[in-house]
Amino acid sequence: MRDVRIFFEKKDMAKYISHLDLMRCFSRAVKRAGIDIWYTEGFNPHPFMTFSLPLSLGTESFCESVDIRTNDEMPFDEIKERFQSTLPDGIRVTKVAAPVHKANEICFSEFEILFYTEKSELVLSSLKEKIGADEINVEKKGKQGRKKVFRQVNIKENIQSFDFSENENGVLLKVVLTAGVKDNINPSLLIDAITADVKDEIKGIDIKKTKMMLEDMKEFE
């Protein structure tokens, strides 16, 4: 048995595949690819497969990863090739390798958020002001037992770094947010909070996840 980490991109229409659906999609792709994957040995055996972090519906990513366990020693290159031919459009395998870090070591994610607007200057100054404020309060969905509850959270501390620029489509925000098992922040929370004043000027928003990092800012491998 051997652990294998598969890095992949999830782009274009594939960004509309939810996390649950993606898991199903991968377990079928493994079967189609004829990879000898290890099955769990419970009452209801299923292919062993764990994703590093769930990705929100509608977000593109260049840095997703999933771990599988194979029964044989099929070369990484062959796994990559076989997998690629059985995945739907929009999902592309970028690297297959032995895992270096544990998934729970992930502490940060980097995002590129593009705000489509014709009034870049106005939008940029408003976004800058909001993100620079002392507190960024958002409503976070949570659960108490079975009940769904909302609570107010200040996510200022979750923003590790940010950087704005303008391009022909509008305003681009590069931001590093805390991520992982402990303190995962969905970028849409930040977006909702900082765009409140300029909603009408923004014609659309693209979110791309570009990197996953450890506590020391080294890239997750």
């Binding site: 229409m13 509309y16 595949i17 939810s18 079928r28 995945l87 739907p88 459009d89 659309g204």
Partner: peptide
């Protein structure tokens, strides 16, 4: 981006 289960409408399935 504004609907439930957008994968109903994307096509592109295997």
């Amino acid at each position: 981006k504004q609907v439930q289960k957008p994968a109903r409408y994307t096509g592109g399935e295997f």
